[in-house]
Design a protein around this nucleic acid. Structure first.
Length: 275
DNA sequence: ACCTTCTCCTGACAGC
DNA sequence: TGCTGTCAGGAGAAGG
């Protein structure tokens, strides 16, 4: 579900409510979360009385920093949700973890229908190491020059796969890759190394603009996504190609939006104006 | 290095 | 109503 704009929105909400809070208790409700812990993981009890000093996003991951160099790494994958709920809310079978705090009525719930997501209890140093090996630069931090370098370096990859590869650029998923390529007027099948200078600049700017606009509208809610307060986003109303196959291209009006699998992922594009 | 396919898991929806 | 197949925002593994 959540790509960069959705995770960014969640983190903004979490920070507003949780910075400086001290943990009462972290509870794993479902046993599968325990199985996903990495070697060297802390037990949930280690989080008692720890204070949240910072929360941030890296790619599609959420990182919590507690005192004592303790960290928490969360990935929501397809259907994960991390939101503050009233304690009176019933815990359904898809709710897998709960975090409670001193002096806060709401509790933080981790819910995930498909159970692809994880919540890893690690030292902050372990999290930083994992991020360093698993993720490429952030779309908002990379320079145009570095962006161009990465296009050449992975020049044999199709643009669609290039955007989806978290080791090249972190945070972009299936929705935003299609929206970015549409905005940049580039075909998802183009090889990354084949872009002209002008196209590379357009591509770089399109990525930033699409992600910025999506953040401004608090992300896209297709089915499961909600922010930290349990609210839906609004960017799905602005999607120009994603899930719009069969509709006339909103830009050139010459062809219908086509849906085609690339790398096992449905890809939507206009065959007339994305070249 | 890159591609495709399969895999983890649950639920929604289309077609019969 | 109920079956079967397909699809879904992610991403790692395996094989070509």
């Amino acid at each position: 579900m959540p790509e960069l704009p959705e995770v960014e929105t969640i983190v903004t909400g979490l920070k507003a409510n949780l910075l400086g809070r001290r943990v009462k208790e972290l509870v794993f409700i479902s046993p599968h979360l325990k199985k996903k812990q990495l070697p060297g993981a802390f037990r949930p009890e280690a989080y008692r009385r720890r204070k949240i000093l910072d929360i941030w996003r890296r790619g599609k991951m959420i990182v919590f920093r507690f005192d004592g160099q303790l960290g928490l790494l969360v990935h929501l994958k397809m259907t994960g949700q991390l939101f503050l709920a009233d304690p009176a809310r019933k815990i359904d079978k898809h709710t897998h973890a709960r975090l409670t705090f001193y002096g806060l009525k709401k509790e933080l719930l981790f819910r995930d229908i498909r159970k692809f997501g994880f919540l890893n209890c690690l030292a902050l140093s372990q999290i930083e190491e994992k991020i360093k090996t698993d993720l490429g630069p952030e779309p908002f931090e990379i320079s145009l020059n570095d962006f161009r370098y990465l296009l050449k370096r992975h020049g044999q990859k199709r643009l669609k796969n290039w955007l989806l590869d978290q080791k090249i650029i972190a945070g972009i998923g299936n929705i935003y890759s299609d929206e970015i390529l549409f905005r940049a007027r580039l075909s998802p099948f183009r090889l990354a190394g084949s872009l002209t200078e002008e196209q590379a600049v357009r591509f770089y700017r399109a990525a930033r603009r699409v992600l910025e606009e999506a953040i401004a509208l608090k992300g896209s809610s297709i089915s499961d996504y909600v922010d930290a307060m349990g609210e839906k986003g609004g960017y799905q109303r602005r999607h120009r190609v994603y899930a719009r196959d069969g509709q006339l291209c909103p830009r050139c009006h010459r062809e219908k939006i086509v849906r085609q699998k690339i790398n096992g992922r449905s890809t939507f594009y206009c065959p007339a104006c994305q070249l």
